[in-house]
Simulated assay, not measured.
Amino acid sequence: MKTDIENFLNYLMVEKGFSGNTKEAYHNDLCQLADFAGNCLSNRGAQHLWDNFNRQDMLSYLLDLKERKYAVTTVVRKLAAAKSFFGFMIEEKKVRQNPTDNIESPKVGKPLPGAISVGQVKLLLEQPVKLSAPEAKRDRAMLELLYASGMRVSELINLNVEDVDCDEGQVRCFGKGQKERIVPIYPQAARATAEYVNEVRHRLQRDESEKALFLNRRGERLTRQGLWQILKEYARAAGLADQVTPHTLRHSFATHMLNGGADLRSVQELLGHANISTTQIYTHLTSDHIRRAYDSAHPRAKK
């Protein structure tokens, strides 16, 4: 059964251009489903084949997840992985029926992204400046680039040296599905990045063939986990430990751009969202700004 999962995951990578992170998430979810399916089939003496796993079995799996107190968002994700997998199996004629047919995902409220204020961003970005270690210049460049561009953390750590043009003030990154986009960055971020590249990166580099922009102490490409640990330390130093996640600067970038008057389409392009509905969630965070603008502009609202 797990061989079918591997074939499906390879299909996602080769045919659909899915990222390694998405493949890993699907792998974990589907292997969990395969273990549950194997137990179901064993209990009724059936062969361990996906074609013997039926709709009732799928409903039992979802009930099991609920009884084990999985979050609704996690159940939704696991069901989505199963739907995608069985859709593939139908196309490949590996199963005759889709056990996920007519099973609706649990309703889940879409959480608002966590943004922090302009003042809090400034406080966070100032933390590496207080340190003298060479890595502090790297960290400052990373934080400035995240807030300057709105990049995802995964996009930042996948940057190579050639992807940032500090003279032109722009960065080239690759989003979901390896879709390329060019994002402008403000001068302070460009200067911080140039300073890191010119003064620090070569001190971290062990292998001259390494192209990664941001390196760890071993001279290897910094990982998502490594960046998150670094960010947590600076958030703690800034007194923002409870308010900062790996994507806080991305969310703050989008919110502050809209508050500053940027149009939704431009922010969509900058964030690399395929659908503008994804970007629209940030408009909920700008209601205070809209209220202030209304109160100051409408003749009957002025005090």
Rank of each mutant, 00 (worst) to 15 (best):
M1S: 05
D4A: 14
E6L: 05
L9E: 06
Y11T: 10
N21R: 02
Y26W: 03
Y26A: 09
L33M: 01
A34P: 00
D35K: 06
G38S: 14
L41F: 05
Q47S: 12
L49Y: 06
D51W: 00
D51C: 01
N52M: 01
F53H: 04
M58H: 05
S60Y: 08
Y61N: 05
L62S: 00
L62P: 04
L63T: 09
R68I: 07
V75Y: 04
K78R: 15
F85T: 10
G87C: 05
I90M: 15
I103R: 05
V108E: 13
V108M: 13
G114A: 09
L123D: 08
L125H: 06
E126W: 03
Q127C: 09
V129K: 12
K130D: 09
K130M: 11
S132K: 14
S132Q: 13
P134Y: 09
E144S: 11
G150P: 02
E155A: 05
N158Y: 05
V161M: 15
V161R: 15
C166K: 07
E168G: 14
Q170T: 00
K176P: 08
E180T: 08
E180I: 06
I182N: 00
R191V: 14
A192Q: 08
E195H: 05
E195C: 10
H202S: 12
D207K: 13
K211R: 15
F214V: 02
R217E: 02
R221W: 03
L227I: 06
W228Y: 12
W228V: 02
E233T: 15
Y234A: 02
A238Y: 07
G239M: 14
L249D: 04
H251Q: 12
L258F: 09
G261V: 04
A262R: 01
A262I: 02
S266M: 03
V267M: 03
E269Q: 09
Q280W: 14
D288T: 08
R300C: 03
A301I: 01
